[in-house]
Design a protein around this nucleic acid. Structure first.
Lengths: 345, 345
DNA sequence: CTGTTAGCGCGTTCAA
DNA sequence: TTGAACGCGCTAACAG
């Protein structure tokens, strides 16, 4: 591998001149610039990124960390899409992405701090969804540049969030406007910010329509089809009456579909169903499921933009702002009591 | 940020002594070792990974590159799982993963070479699936350590592959043994190695059962449900008779399911269906779909193991070997003409 | 416009 | 067992 010295020697200049050519400095004569460039070509020279990082004390790398269990949601397309979005912006700005998947939140915390303190990354994109995650306090305390993705935050930090409140509200209103009158809500882990946001949107929609919220109509399920099914069965056995379900995840929506089949309820006539995430293949259920589509790709792009801007303008700039990416309600048959159009956004 | 010098000063030793403590050298007195450690604690010292990389000419980072279009398969869980597997091993061996998602194969080629020549990564895990991809020749020519994932290779290189041939064969045999007699095959892009392997397994199964292969019974589809549906419609309109479908992807299997619905064929009685990939939510179709499950997590783990072994033992070791990870046939109703057990692996 | 001189923070000889 | 000196490859401040 040729180094900057080799190039310098061949071009008969000093290393710093070569460095200037690399940096595109204009305080250099066209002639020597060309000579240097020819030498670089000839030697097939590529600057050593590690050495540059050391000299400039910046790695031009950002870390992306997630903590996921084996079985859990990591396999859902959300993260894939987020990564694609991140990658798009990172490439364009000549940054790299370091990926770290942890098994537990504690491990993630460790990894985050390690990556930054080792100077391996200039900043982090973090996707924790727990409320008041200690990781966030730690990052703030240690002055680590970072952006949150897929959540809002109590503290004033950079974050990109999807509009869970609005989305849940819109979905609920959609059901009500379709003529359903008793909408129940299946929530995920109530400790997650997303869950709280979604239920809050559900409540807002109810109150907007003059319907009072009943705590018994909102139930919690674990992350599985079965758990969604069971949640509804239990509601039923408790005598709670309902004709529509807003599910905080597509899995629950599928559980609701099973519930309908099990109880011989026609969908959408007797039971309306709306899910969250617009999972692939979802349009293939019978009937096709209405679902809220999160724009994960855009989330990823925006998070990196925010972070890189903050990095390039360390002091002044970027007053910690939460960017909200609107999501789309993909309407399919499962929520169309009035049975109208099929697929509008 | 404290540096090694600060620690040295505080412990009243030379930087090289501190370096030895970090490296865990045993040629050091217990006393000074403790003194140094205390100083590190006190200063909250963490070695600068960039500086180490420069000094040792190794980044302890491996690159993972993929070239995916927006719409395409990247959102399928394969890559998520592969990454989880890679991450597991990388963490354990104290390596990091650099992620690069390109839009085109050319871009991917660029990125691969750049990452390595910049010394940002010590080696690469590459997931190209195109036959005779020029990227591979390039990597070999430039002596880049790398491992292929999800494919075999003409050249003697490190690779981890799932047993597409065996899997397709097993799936076909399963259909035949269920009493289906005319199995057709829906293939993906015939330029991909996976496609060729799967069709080859299909043929092997036929010949093993004394059935001659008819070219007209194997069709190619594009990556969508609709295309799978169309492929079968066309077969039918051409007068090709069949009672079972082996689909090289779950999407095609879903297309087959639509085809059955459209033509009022009962599944599995009148049409047997087996897919590939065991996509999540798949068990929820009606009837639940039989599918080949690829052990992507294991693929990721194995690829990193192979690469890291090769890196740690540059010359000698690792005779380029192809590791094959067996996949599992997840049997559900869609292929059970004899209607027996439901879910065996 | 260009060269010289110092680092960036750590690993690794070579002596002692 | 320890320290001094040098090098990894590049950037940047200071001269000229």
């Amino acid at each position: 591998m040729a180094t900057i010295k080799d190039v310098a020697k061949l071009a008969d200049v000093s290393p710093s001149t070569v460095s200037r050519v690399i940096a595109g400095s204009n305080r250099i004569s066209l002639e020597t610039k060309l000579r240097v460039k020819r030498a670089m070509e000839e030697l097939n020279y590529v600057p050593n990124a590690i050495a540059r990082s050391l000299a400039r004390s910046r790695s031009r790398t950002i870390g992306f960390t997630i903590a996921r269990e084996a079985d859990q949601a990591f396999s859902n397309p959300f993260f894939s899409e987020v990564m694609r979005g991140m990658s798009t912006i990172a490439q364009a700005r000549d940054y790299n992405i370091l990926l770290s998947i942890s098994r537990t939140p504690e491990e993630e915390r460790q990894k985050c701090m390690q990556l930054f303190r080792e100077r391996r990354v200039d900043g982090l994109i973090v996707s924790t969804s727990r409320k008041q995650d200690p990781l966030i306090d730690l990052l703030i305390a240690e002055n680590v540049p970072f952006a949150l993705i897929g959540r809002s935050c109590e503290h004033p930090v950079l974050s990109v969030n999807n509009d869970n409140i609005q989305a849940a509200k819109k979905a609920t209103l959609h059901l009500l406007e379709q003529g359903y009158e008793k909408v129940v809500f299946i929530s995920g882990d109530p400790n997650l910010i997303v869950s709280q946001d979604r239920i809050s949107g559900y409540k807002q929609a109810l109150s907007e329509k003059g319907i009072s919220f009943a705590a018994e109509r909102a139930v919690t399920a674990e992350f599985s089809i079965e758990s969604g099914f069971n949640a509804l069965q239990e509601l039923k056995s408790r005598g709670v009456d309902f004709d529509a379900v807003l599910a905080a995840d597509d899995l629950f929506a599928l559980g609701a579909l099973q519930f309908a089949g099990h109880n011989r309820l026609r969908v959408p006539e007797e039971l309306g169903i709306v899910g969250f995430n617009d999972s692939p293949l979802l349009s293939f259920t019978n009937p096709p499921l209405t679902s809220v589509k999160i724009l994960s790709y855009e989330l990823g792009m925006e998070a990196v933009k925010l972070l890189l801007n903050a990095l390039s303008d360390p002091e002044h700039c970027s007053l910690p702002a939460e960017h909200v990416i609107p999501s789309q309600l993909i309407i399919r048959q499962s929520s169309l009591k009035k049975n109208r159009e099929m697929d509008c956004t």
